[in-house]
Amino acid sequence: MSDILVDINKMHFQRGGRVIYDSISLQVKKGGITAVMGPSGIGKTTLLKVIGGQLYPDSGEVLFQGENIHQMSRKRLYDVRRKMSMLFQSGALFTNISVFDNVAFPLREHTKLAETVIETIVLLKLEAVGLRGAAHLMPNELSGGMARRAALARAIALDPDMIMYDEPFAGQDPISMGVLVKLIKELNSALGLTSIVVTHDVKEVLTIADYAYIMADKRIIGAGTPEEIRNSSSELVQQFLQGNADGPVPFHFPAQSMQETFMGTKS
C-alpha cells in the first residue's frame, strides 16, 4: 500500500474570477506532520476545504487514500470524512452546548455507544488536551487557546486517520502556542495520526514538521524537510522565513504608478 495519504495532482482552483491555485501538486505522507506555510490570504484554509471536499477544484485531482474526493457520492464522502478531522481557526465549537457535549457530539451522532461509555471517552479526550476540569464550561467561558484545545479534543473524538489544522497558532500567547505545538506533535505520534498543519508561524511549525511546503503567488515555491527549507537558496523562501517586508513578494499591492495616480500622467 502506498504511504501517501493525500495526493494533490495539478490542482487548479479559482474563486470569483481570481485564481487561487495554479496547478499545484503536493503529497501528504501517512503518519507524518506536513506543514503548509504561506503568507496570509494565500488560500491556505481553502486548501484544507478542498481536501475535505467542501470546495471543488476547477481541474486536477485530490486523492485521499487513493480515492478521488471530488468524484465520490455524497454518502461515500461522508464516510470518508469520518476518517479526517479538521481543527478550525476559531475552534468552531457549538456555542449552545458545553465543552463536554461538544466533544461528545460526533460520538453521539455517529455511534450507538452507551452514555456511560461516551462519558469515559470524552473525559479521556479532554484529559489528553488538559481540559478535563473544564468539561462543564460553556465555549464562551474559555480563552482562545482553551477553545482550540477543546476543539482538538472534539476533532480526535472519533479517532480519525488524519487531522487538518487551520492556523492552530494564530493569535496565541507563547504559553498556549507551546502547548499546542506539543499537543500536535504528541497526538500525532501517540494516536498514529497524519497531520496537515496550515500556518504562517514558521518557527513553531518547522520544529515539529516532517515535511513542509511553502506557498506563494498561487504556486508552491518550496518544499522539503525543515532542514532543506531553512537552507533553501530561493529568495522567495528566504524572504518568507526571515519575514522581510520587501522582496520577491512585494510590499505594495499592485497599483498604478505614483505619477499616474497623483498627476494623471503616464510615466
Binding site: 476545504k49 467542501q54 470524512r81 478550525f88 457549538f94 457530539f105 451522532e109 455517529h110
Partner: peptide, 11 residues
Amino acid sequence: TEQLSSLEMMA
C-alpha cells in the same frame, strides 16, 4: 463562526 463547516467536516 464555521460551525456549519465543522458539521460538514464531522460528516
